[in-house]
């Protein structure tokens, strides 16, 4: 049994090998997951937004309203103030998209697209773009650049502090992507490793393998529940940190 191959097959992206007129189409397991989540979000949210009189529709509409209130009052307004109100749709979309992509990985035959650094880098680039846009919109180019120098900095230190502050912002955006990637990847590696433990021990002795199945499955259930928590937590952390960084750019001092 090649453990490394099973691990990499479970975690890495797979190209489906479709070509159109000699051009390789970018259809991979992760892109299919991302597209599925996007389509489900588009159709589902449109269906909920249309409203209706049935109990289910009213329940879903109330849930959606609660969700928007949670993002607005829990993340956007405390960190960005009233200026953040116009960016509320972005934060609502970001949280739900990350959450559903994280949860998709727990469905059999689907993959966690957020365990791919490219997906997270694209999400972090969107958040980085929003942070820069907020700075430019509320302070202008000169004001935005001035915000990179903390008040009270001696003039001779400005050439050193200014690039350091710009690098800090870039690193903060990189860390957003890295945290989500590391958490989702590590969780799924632990899940598959626990399952593999049964077969590794079973290879040594069939009886020991059966004996190992009970604790391994117990741990597996525990880790799956933990992954469920991590899926919510990481979506929350990514969205909240974007709001904090955007808020710190809007309210510089």
């Amino acid at each position: 049994m090649d453990v490394a191959e099973i691990l990499s097959h479970h975690i890495l992206d797979h190209h489906w090998g479709y070509t159109l007129g000699g051009v390789s189409l970018p259809i991979t397991t992760h892109t299919v997951t991302l597209l599925s989540v996007s389509v489900i979000m588009l159709i589902g949210l449109y269906w909920i937004a249309k409203g209706g009189t049935s109990t289910l529709k009213r329940l879903l509409t109330a849930g959606a309203e609660e969700y928007v209130t949670f993002i607005r009052d829990g993340m956007v307004l405390p960190n960005m103030g009233q200026e953040g109100r116009r960016f509320l749709p972005y934060f609502c979309t970001l949280f739900l998209f990350i959450l559903l992509t994280n949860l998709a990985g727990l469905i059999p035959n689907m993959k966690t697209a957020t365990s791919n650094i490219s997906v997270n880098a694209a999400l972090a680039l969107c958040s980085g773009g929003l942070i820069v846009f907020c700075g430019l919109k509320f302070h202008g180019i000169i004001g935005f650049l001035k915000g990179f120098v903390p008040s009270g900095t001696p003039g001779w230190l400005v050439p050193l502090i200014f690039p350091l502050e710009i690098i800090s912002l870039i690193i903060k955006v990189c860390v957003l992507a890295l945290r989500l990637f590391a958490n989702m990847l590590a969780g799924h590696m632990v899940l598959i490793s626990l399952l593999l433990m049964i077969f590794i021990i079973g290879n040594l002795s069939a009886v020991a393998g059966v004996g190992a199945a009970v604790p391994a499955m117990g741990l597996e259930i525990f880790m799956t529940l933990l992954e469920l928590l991590v899926a919510f937590l990481q979506a929350y952390v990514f969205t909240l940190l974007t709001a904090i960084f955007a808020g710190s750019v809007i309210h510089t001092h």
């Binding site: 405390p78 960190n79 800090s168 690193i171 903060k172 990189c174 860390v175 890295l178 945290r179 952390v237 909240l240 940190l241 904090i244």
Partner: peptide
Amino acid sequence: QEHLEIATLGLELAC
């Protein structure tokens, strides 16, 4: 929010 920012510092240093 401050707790979250403090918890991020280690990862920022590594990154």
